[in-house]
Computed example of a mutant assay.
Amino acid sequence: MLAIRKVLVALAAAAAVAAGLTAAGPTPRAQAAVPTTIPLEFKNTSGRSEQIYIYDIGTLLATGQQGWADASGAFHAWPAGGNPPTPAPDASIAGPANGQTMTIQMPKFSGRVYFSYGQKLVFKLTTGGLVQPAVQNPSDPNVNILFNWSEYTLNDSGLWINSTQVDMFSAPYAVGVKLADGTTKSTGHLKAGGYAGFFNALKGQPGGWANLIRTRSDGTILRALAPGHGIESGALPSTVMDDYINRVWTKYATSTLTVTPFANQPGTKYYGRVSGNVMNFTNSSGAVVTSFQKPDADSIFGCYKLLDAPNDLVRGPISRTLCAGFNRSTLLVNPNQPDTGSASFYQDAVTNHYARKIHAQMADGKAYAFAFDDVGNYESLVNDGNPQKAYITLDPFS
Score class of each variant (00 low, 15 high):
301 F>D: 00
371 A>K: 02
16 A>T: 07
311 N>C: 01
265 Q>G: 01
335 P>A: 04
360 A>K: 09
215 T>G: 13
89 P>K: 13
143 V>F: 12
391 Y>I: 10
84 P>N: 06
73 G>E: 07
320 R>Q: 01
318 I>D: 00
271 Y>E: 02
146 L>D: 09
68 W>G: 05
317 P>K: 04
149 W>L: 10
93 I>M: 15
228 G>A: 10
175 V>T: 13
169 F>D: 07
222 L>D: 04
391 Y>H: 10
327 N>R: 01
377 N>S: 14
225 L>G: 02
334 N>F: 04
325 G>E: 00
292 F>T: 00
242 D>I: 07
88 A>P: 08
279 M>E: 01
98 N>L: 02
283 N>Y: 12
65 Q>E: 15
374 D>P: 01
233 S>R: 12
347 Q>D: 05
6 K>A: 07
188 G>M: 03
80 A>Y: 12
343 A>S: 14
312 D>L: 01
258 T>Y: 03
295 P>N: 06
301 F>W: 05
176 G>K: 09
287 A>S: 14
167 D>N: 14
222 L>G: 03
37 T>G: 14
312 D>I: 00
221 I>D: 08
28 P>H: 07
154 L>E: 03
333 V>L: 12
174 A>D: 09
137 N>L: 10
321 T>F: 00
63 T>A: 09
120 K>P: 06
70 D>K: 02
201 A>I: 03
103 T>C: 06
162 N>Y: 08
278 V>C: 08
275 S>T: 13
10 A>S: 14
112 R>D: 05
256 T>F: 10
176 G>N: 10
24 A>D: 14
97 A>Q: 15
117 Y>Q: 10
161 I>Y: 05
207 G>N: 06
338 P>S: 02
231 I>F: 07
205 Q>I: 02
322 L>H: 00
365 G>Q: 07
396 P>S: 08
327 N>I: 00
365 G>K: 10
335 P>N: 11
309 A>D: 00
215 T>H: 15
32 A>L: 11
315 R>Q: 13
178 K>Y: 01
240 V>E: 01
230 G>V: 00
189 H>P: 03
95 G>L: 13
75 F>L: 12
299 S>G: 07
200 N>K: 13
72 S>A: 14
329 S>F: 06
199 F>M: 05
13 A>S: 12
111 G>V: 02
335 P>Y: 02
268 T>Y: 11
157 S>D: 11
117 Y>V: 02
164 T>K: 12
252 Y>Q: 00
1 M>T: 10
200 N>Y: 08
82 G>S: 12
284 S>L: 06
50 E>P: 05
223 R>W: 10
386 N>F: 14
13 A>V: 05
